[in-house]
Structures are given as structure tokens and as C-alpha cells.
Design a protein around this nucleic acid. Structure first.
Lengths: 193, 193
DNA sequence: CGCTAACGGTACGATAGCGTTTCGATGGAG
DNA sequence: CTCCATCGAAACGCTATCGTACCGTTAGCG
């Protein structure tokens, strides 16, 4: 997160500067939340001028959209030959991510923002769909191999597999025990054979 | 929610004034989010003086805690004699609540706030636990009646039943079709017989 | 009733962010 | 090496909120 892209006193331009500002935006959102997400704060954090920020993004909302969009990292769908193993692997990686700041605080701020700004809502939908893809792929493969029944609904199954962990962290605020992943996988996948 | 406790121009005191300010706090949080949740805004909305607000709550965080605490309304656990019917009834009521503002926007702001303030985090946990109780009760009764297997885990089952709807609304930002409730109930409950 | 604590309204200086402008410095392509 | 688009820094007037203080008013208890 704390990227010193350049040596002391030196300053990057063009795309380098853009990346630096986006990283700073995420850091601010993480630490101060949506309430503290201001152009001034991002400029300070990035060691940038407010003018440079306004040159690229007319509003804090536009900046937030680009910053969150930059957080997406493609996650390859595993292919061990077993649906259970594949799903367990994906969910374990997800739980790890959920336990490590800054991701959860970032997501919490984004959930609040998306509830009020249509542009952010759409972006959040897109990002979520991209994140769902590996799980969907794995489930489809499992169905094709006959590991899961032909009437399996991959969309609903993905919801059932993913949502409990969101819920635990953001709503119930309870720790996620390690064995919860296999428990959920068993409860959701077993009846589908 | 919108309580006009008094006629025009008249002003309530003591607990009446307190209720009026809490209602105003929720209205502000709903409309402006956590970022716009200020003492000034709440005072304006309540038709109250800032001094009166500061007299009761030293910080916006303390006010937010009391305001959210006031949103809780006990929900009696249904008892139709059938676990499936009971659960369906509770989840249907919940989905209805989830689709009607101000509740979801309120909850979104609160999720963000709770991620940063330990006092709010604890309150959120308490509120969530109280909201879970009816579902837990219904599941326990179903297990006692033998409708559900003796090794049923009510806590995990509650997570599995509730979380998909949170997820749909706050994360995936997709509509919740009416048939999703019975679908989820069937998928989660049927294997437990 | 009458009295008093609680209230609304207002003003205060202080701080912070807004959105814009100006100016001097410097990177990096040609 | 040259040159100019891009950048950082700073200052601008403006508005909003902060937290506190001091009024005049009044609700509601005794």
C-alpha cells in the first residue's frame, strides 16, 4: 500500500502519478472511511497537489470509482478435479482476504457509498460479478463432470457459499473459525450430489 | 419513525425531546449517510438546539449508538407448527424490510461506522444477536419436534438462511425475486430432515 | 397556580474542506 | 540538449461544522 514509487523528492508523471493518487485514495478511504474521504486528504497522502487531483477527477465520487476499480485482481479458478476441493480453496482465500485489513474496511465504506451513488452501485455490481466468476466456473465444471446434480443452480449456490462469510464479518461481527469453510461447503454442496 | 409528538410550534421536553432527536438522527443518517451525520444537521432536522444535543451526547458516535439502539423492534417468533412455514414467514418479513428504505441505507451506514468504532461494533453485534433470536427459536423448536435432525446446528443454519439476502442487497446489488425465499429455505432446510 | 430546569435561537472564534488560480520547477519525449 | 506539458506548492474567498456560551422563553412538576 505505502508505495514510494520514486526516490525522495522525485515525482512521477502521467500514469505513474495516477497510480500513486489511486493508492493514496484507497489508503485514505481505509483509514478515515467515507466521511474522511476528501480531496485534501488524498492530496496530502499522495504528496500531490489538489489541482492535479481535480485535473483528473471532477468529484470525490469519480475518484472513488477509479480507486475501487483498481483494487480488482483477477483470481484464477482452481482445477483440482474435485468440486469440493476447488470450492474450499476459493473460499479459504476469500476468508483470508476478509480478515486482513484494508480490504474489509474498504468494502464497508464502499457498501455505504454504493447505497447512495448510482455510479458506485453499478461499479460495485461489476466488481462483485467479476469476483464471483471463479466460483461459478468451478461449479459449472462440477456439474459437467456429474459431481453435482444437473438441476444445480450455480448462481444461487454461489450466493449460499459466499454470503455467510460476508455476514459473519460485516453484520454479526463474529470471528470466522477455520472449520467454518468446510462446514459451509459440506452443508451447501453435499445435498447437490 | 416520523413521530410528530407535538403540535406545530410546541416543543416537548425530557424523554419526548430525546425521542425527537433520535428520530431526526436516523433521518439524517438515512439521507446523508455517515459522511453527512453532523450535530448541526441533526439539530436542524429535529428543530432542536445544538446545545441540547451536546447536553445529552458528547460526540456524534454516542448519538449514533443511541439512535441505532432505538431502531430495534422486537419481532415475535411465529409458531405455526411447521419449521418451514415459520422460517419462510420470518425471512419474508426480513426481505420486505430490506427492500424498504430507510432500513437498508441505515444499515449500510452503520456497517461502515461499526468497522471503525469499537462501541458501534459492539452495539451492532448486540442488535444482530437480538434479531437472530426468532429464527434461532424456531429452529430449536423444529429440532425438538423432530422436524430437523438432532445434529442440526442452529447458529450455522441461521447464518445460511439469512446471509444470502444481505449479500444480494448490499454486495451483489441485485433484486431479490419473491421465489428466492422458498428456494433458500428448501436448499438449506431440506437436507436437515 | 408559580417556579425552575430544560429548551430553542443565536452568535462566537476556530478549524477544515471546497474548487480555483497562479507560479516556479522538472520530467521526459523528441 | 531543449523545451513544454505536467506537476507540487501555496494562497484565494467561501462555506460548513465544530464546541461553547449566553440569552429569552416555556413546559411541566409540585
Amino acid at each position: 500500500m505505502a508505495d514510494d514509487l520514486d526516490g525522495a523528492g522525485r515525482v512521477s508523471r502521467g500514469d505513474g502519478a495516477r497510480q500513486r493518487m489511486l493508492a493514496a485514495a484507497l489508503a485514505v478511504l481505509d483509514e478515515a472511511g467515507l466521511a474522511g474521504f476528501t480531496m485534501e486528504a488524498v492530496a496530502r497522502r499522495a504528496g500531490a497537489s489538489k489541482a492535479t487531483l481535480y485535473r483528473r477527477w471532477p468529484t470525490t465520487g469519480a475518484l472513488l470509482v477509479d480507486a475501487m476499480d483498481a483494487t480488482y485482481r483477477p483470481f484464477p479458478a482452481p482445477d483440482t478435479g474435485s468440486v469440493t476441493k476447488d470450492v474450499t480453496q476459493i473460499l479459504t482465500a476469500f476468508v483470508t482476504l476478509l480478515e486482513r485489513t484494508p480490504f474489509p474496511r474498504l468494502l464497508a465504506a464502499f457498501i455505504d457509498a454504493a447505497e447512495r451513488d448510482p455510479a458506485l452501485s453499478k461499479l460495485h455490481t461489476d466488481l462483485t460479478n467479476r469476483r464471483r466468476e471463479p466460483l461459478l466456473t468451478v461449479l459449472e465444471r462440477g456439474r459437467a463432470r456429474g459431481e453435482l446434480g444437473p438441476d444445480t443452480d450455480p448462481e444461487l449456490t454461489t450466493d449460499l457459499l459466499t454470503s455467510p462469510f460476508f455476514y459473519r464479518h460485516f453484520v454479526a461481527h463474529r470471528p470466522i473459525p477455520r472449520r467454518m469453510v468446510p462446514d459451509v461447503v459440506r452443508r451447501v454442496l453435499e445435498p447437490l450430489r
